[in-house]
Computed example of a mutant assay.
Amino acid sequence: MISKDAIFNIKTHAEFEALALNAFRFQFENNSVYRSFCDLLYRHPSDVKHLRDIPFLPIQFFKTHEVLSSQNKVEKIFTSSGTTGSVTSKHLVTDLNIYEESYLKGFQHFYGNVKDYVILALLPSYLEREGSSLIYMVNDLIQKSKHPESGFYLNNLQDLSETLKQLEANGQKTLLIGVSFALLDVVEQFQFNLKHTIVMETGGMKGRRKEIIRQELHDRLKGGFGVNHIHSEYGMTELLSQAYSKGNGIFDCPPWMKIIIRDTEDALTILPPNKTGGLNIIDLANINSCSFIASQDLGKTSENGQFEIIGRFDNSDIRGCNLMAL
């Protein structure tokens, strides 16, 4: 079994690759769904010597199967958003401590100590349903910030506006994290000039508004909030880790997460940097489910491991936790 300490103390690419190969062998032996998938591909541990050799489980399996590599009791089931009647993804989590350590260390890696921030969350579509992993994460960040002003906002945009302006006047570092349509609602009613606030969008319109390209969204938000950059969070129900962008749609992963691009015509062929294809995600925090997921997002990586989202496969369902198509 791979320990949390090993996952969250990766320092080099060599350490990441060694741990990923160990995770593959562990999940091949302990995850019946993943084992069956690997068997169908005739891809077994003796065949897997490098990251590029690892099979990536199509993300749709989280809709139809219980994807588990642990015999421990399930502590929490996170579910994806979906339209009425649609099949949602389910991520069965047997160790919430791993999820908590992943998002806390991930936040610290990119932004520093959460206690330095007031956390304001504008996530109405997530609050209005059960089972959101994003709400679980943000609620914990709010609690750990220990600022009385931190909290969720639903439809009380006037209160949010007043709080933002008061925090700005006090010079208080603030993170405003919100779903795209709700952030647009704010800037259409109020105008800001924020110097101490990070504005972070979590993607999609959730059917509330017409989808727009990321550049237009960010331009409107930058103008309305008076900021130079719009940050973004890339996460999903099937992952226990998040990537972050500090502007221009360029994302970085924490050390225990990596994006690999696959050929859209041949899912077993891995593409070099700067080529567009499907996003394969390695998330070592998923040690108790599946760490190797073939997503329905299209994108490309750069030489330094950063990535950007180009869009989604045409035949996939559009889910609110993913970024909008460009």
Rank of each mutant, 00 (worst) to 15 (best):
M1C: 12
I2R: 01
D5H: 10
A6H: 13
A14M: 11
R25N: 13
V33A: 04
V33K: 01
L40P: 05
L40T: 12
L41W: 09
Y42P: 04
Y42C: 09
P55V: 05
L57G: 14
T64W: 05
H65L: 06
T83K: 14
V87Y: 08
V87R: 12
S89V: 13
T94D: 09
D95A: 05
Y103K: 00
F110N: 00
K115C: 06
V118A: 13
I119D: 04
I119C: 14
L122V: 04
L127I: 08
V138F: 01
L141N: 04
H147V: 02
P148Q: 09
P148I: 13
S150M: 10
L154D: 04
L157E: 10
E162H: 15
I177P: 10
L183F: 02
L184S: 06
Q189C: 09
K206L: 07
G207Y: 00
K210M: 11
I213R: 13
H218T: 06
N228M: 09
H229C: 06
S245Q: 07
K246V: 00
N248E: 06
W256L: 08
D263G: 07
D266W: 09
P273R: 12
N280H: 12
I282T: 11
S295C: 02
I309Y: 06
R312F: 07
D314T: 11
S316E: 14
S316D: 15
C321S: 10
M324T: 15
A325D: 15
L326A: 15
